[in-house]
Amino acid sequence: MGDPDSSDENNESMTANPQLNRNGELTHLLSIEGLPASILWQILDTARSFVSIGEREVKKVPLLRGKSVFNLFFEASTRTRTTFEIAAKRLSADVINLNIATSSQNKGERLLDTVDNLAAMNADMFIVRHAQSGAAHFIARHVSPNIHVINAGDGRHEHPTQGLLDVFTIRHYKHDFSKLRVAIVGDVLHSRVARSQIHALSILGCPEIRAIGPRTLLPREIQGLGVHVYHDMHEGLKDVDVVTMLRLQNERMQGPLLPSPQEFFKNYGLTPEKLARARPDAIVLHPGPMNRGVEIDSSVADGTQSVILPQVTFGIAVRMAVMSILAGN
């Protein structure tokens, strides 16, 4: 950064794919978009081999021994941070958790300063969550090449490890993406989970992805991502193999986007009746944390078609796989 040439390089990198090195290998995980299918399969296959580690008596492998992984959370999160922490620890890394409260406009300055300081502590990996879309890209552009950045959710852009664990879960239950119909329901507009899952599914060859929700919660150009748009949930769920319910943030439950959580539940809450429109063997995903009675009925969340808890378990394996691949294993 002090180097006058670095800004020039940064400018060039604005158009090059920032997460792959010159050999096409993964050097950061910032978004699913732009990744080749081969890398997604590599992550999924690696993750599969890690699932069993969690079931063992001694839940550790030495793949990241001696490495420092910094959990850099500019936005509050317990669940995601914890799963990254567990994943890193199972790989024998040293994990440092930093919850950096985002305050005022100085946020940005603090962001670069924080990153520089942590880099100076010889960090090997940054797990970054930030309220602004593109924050992980921004940090990845500024760190030296030996530091790997994993995006743990940036604004409403992407949450790539969540997208990966979603497709890992789908693959686990459905085996093959080439004949699947997948429906993503709810607040797609503000959802980084939705974007990552949509990209992951299309890269892996899923032929039909549907986005279901009211117009206020769907991006206007969503068809550009290759999805079919439905506003009627009964229609949208017909014959699907997978239903992903998105979390509706509290602050969006009433106001200009939606009249009330009750009305949202009436139209888009996943009830047994609505789920019956899907294929009988359809599975139900949710990135968590759930709002029972807002986007999902308890009987569905706890029902036989729900794979919400396995998602969490698989999430650790997927995050281990990503870290292990980034570390060069």
Binding site: E33, G134, G155, R156, H157, P219, R220, G224, L225
Partner: peptide
Amino acid sequence: HEGQVATRLGLGGIP
């Protein structure tokens, strides 16, 4: 611009 790029990048759109 509220268009393809803002949708992909998750940036707030100006229609």
